[in-house]
Amino acid sequence: MGTNAAPVLVASGLAKSYRLGGVRVDALRGVDLEVRPGEIVAVAGPSGSGKSTLLNLLGTLDDPDQGRVEVDGVDVARLSERGRTLFRRRRLGFVFQSFNLVPVLSALENVEYPLLLDDVPRRVRLERALAMLAAVGLEGRARHRPDQLSGGERQRVAIARALVHRPRLVLADEPTGNLDSAAAAVVVELLERLVSDLGASVVLASHNPAVIGRARRCVHLRDGRVAADGATEPQP
């Protein structure tokens, strides 16, 4: 994607504070971020630097105290609660550290789920879910439930679920945090390839230098502020 294309994500002046045990914690203190179509941006920083808080605000899961988030040209603050839910369903994809699959559903059904919510016809739903599972190399595990899959396989199912509805932006919070290095490498490579194929953008929070290194750009957070924002060193 060209760098001149309109940004898919514009966040400006984001601030968020919490009360923790009676003490006010400023998780974010004025964060600006722009992500262009096709871009993979790593958000790095030590624990408590505000990575997860930033992803929650970008994903419309939480409201900023100050600042604005615009995704795909939509100012999310203007959306109702239901509007935000539908917005997330159609334009965002989420990958969580703990995979967060529905345990009573098979891999295929987990991937199908976002399409089911949108009343996509069953035949189309199955085709797309199976194609997505094939894309993450799990077509042979479609009928397995999450507890019958390894950690790496679960995260691949989660990636398939995050991408099956062709979102504009994928938010991944520590997607390799619970995986060994080999599985982590597979997951990141998949994520990288698939978002590229689909033309989506990714913002991923991670501690893992190997993961951060695969992103073309890294935003370093420290004490709720952007400490650095630039290109990463290419990984071997």
């Binding site: 994903g59 899961l61 609660e81 239901r82 839910t85 539908l86 997330r88 369903r89 159609r90 989420f94 969580f96 703990s98 967060n100 529905v102 345990p103 789920y113 976002p114 919510l117 949108d118 679920r161 995050a162």
Partner: peptide
């Protein structure tokens, strides 16, 4: 709770 939160996050409306 976490599972329900996940379902809400990925687009399940309150009515669903």
């Amino acid at each position: 709770m976490r599972e329900l939160g996940t379902l809400r996050a990925i687009g399940t409306t309150g009515s669903q």
